[in-house]
């Protein structure tokens, strides 16, 4: 069985409507996803939501090739993104921007709950991260160190926002994949880049314990980390999954 706790907050100074990360989960099926919409593009929040929703609602089979999984997700999510936007009511400048398409990272995790060994597969494009905690030991994916994270992560693109472009395939950037097994008591943390970078910087100090100890007060705790400059001012999303 899986116990799931989720936390998110908008970048300090922004409203909750301006939150551009997204997450979705189905603990019964063992499928989870987080995404970080790129603030440079518009409707990134819609795109990030479309990606996580598509991943969780269409859990890929374990035997399906990683690239084919992402190709399928991309196709469905693009259609959802395009149909979520009321193109006819957009003023000229919003239409110009939306036509450029939206960008987002995507991290999808699936756990095979029917399997005794609780196999998992985590696929990511970009800098959203997964942390696997067994006892006192933490493994991170796809980065092992905070210095590995760049300012220009790989991003999934919605394609251009006009009818003719929707039928055209777009390239899928490099996918990182990790397979593993989970034991009872293991924890998984899914995190978007700002808080993931902080966790990687403090990897020797069991950062998940610090986060869990502020479970009831995440907003002010993470807000404090941002105001003290320890965490970049950005949207923050954390999903804690515990195997019970």
């Amino acid at each position: 069985m899986l116990t799931v706790n989720e936390f998110h907050r908008s970048k300090t100074g922004n409203t909750s409507e301006e939150y551009e990360d997204a997450y979705a989960s189905d603990s019964t099926s063992g499928v989870f996803a987080v995404a970080d919409g790129a603030t440079e593009s518009s409707f990134s929040d819609v795109w990030a939501k479309a990606l996580v929703k598509t991943f969780v609602e269409n859990p890929p089979g374990f035997v399906t090739n990683d690239r084919d999984v992402m190709k399928g997700i991309l196709q469905l999510a693009r259609a959802q993104w395009y149909s979520s936007i009321d193109w006819t009511s957009l003023p000229w400048f919003q239409k110009n921007k939306a036509m450029l398409g939206s960008y987002s990272t995507l991290l999808g995790l699936q756990i095979d709950l029917l399997d005794e060994k609780r196999r998992f597969r985590c696929m990511t494009i970009g800098d959203s991260c997964m942390f696997h905690i067994t006892g006192e030991r933490m493994e991170s994916f796809p980065f092992s160190d905070s210095t590995d994270m760049s300012n220009t992560p790989r991003l999934m693109w919605s394609g251009r926002g006009f009818t003719g472009a929707q039928g055209k395939e777009v390239d899928i950037p490099g996918i990182e994949v990790k397979y593993g097994k989970l034991r009872v008591g293991d924890r998984i943390v899914l995190a978007t880049d700002a808080i993931a970078k902080w966790m990687l910087k403090h990897k020797a100090d069991k950062p998940w314990q610090e986060l869990l100890s502020h479970g009831g007060d995440f907003d002010s705790y993470v807000g404090g980390l941002i105001s003290s400059g320890q965490v970049k001012n950005d949207d923050v999303t954390l999903v804690f999954i515990t195997v019970t």
């Binding site: 000229w92 110009n96 398409g101 251009r160 472009a165 777009v170």
Partner: peptide, 24 residues
Amino acid sequence: RVEKRQIKVADGSGGTTDAEYDFG
């Protein structure tokens, strides 16, 4: 006014496509 203009844009799979945009 806002004028309709045409540009060539990358289509995301190595080619280009024509797109109309609004020029303020």
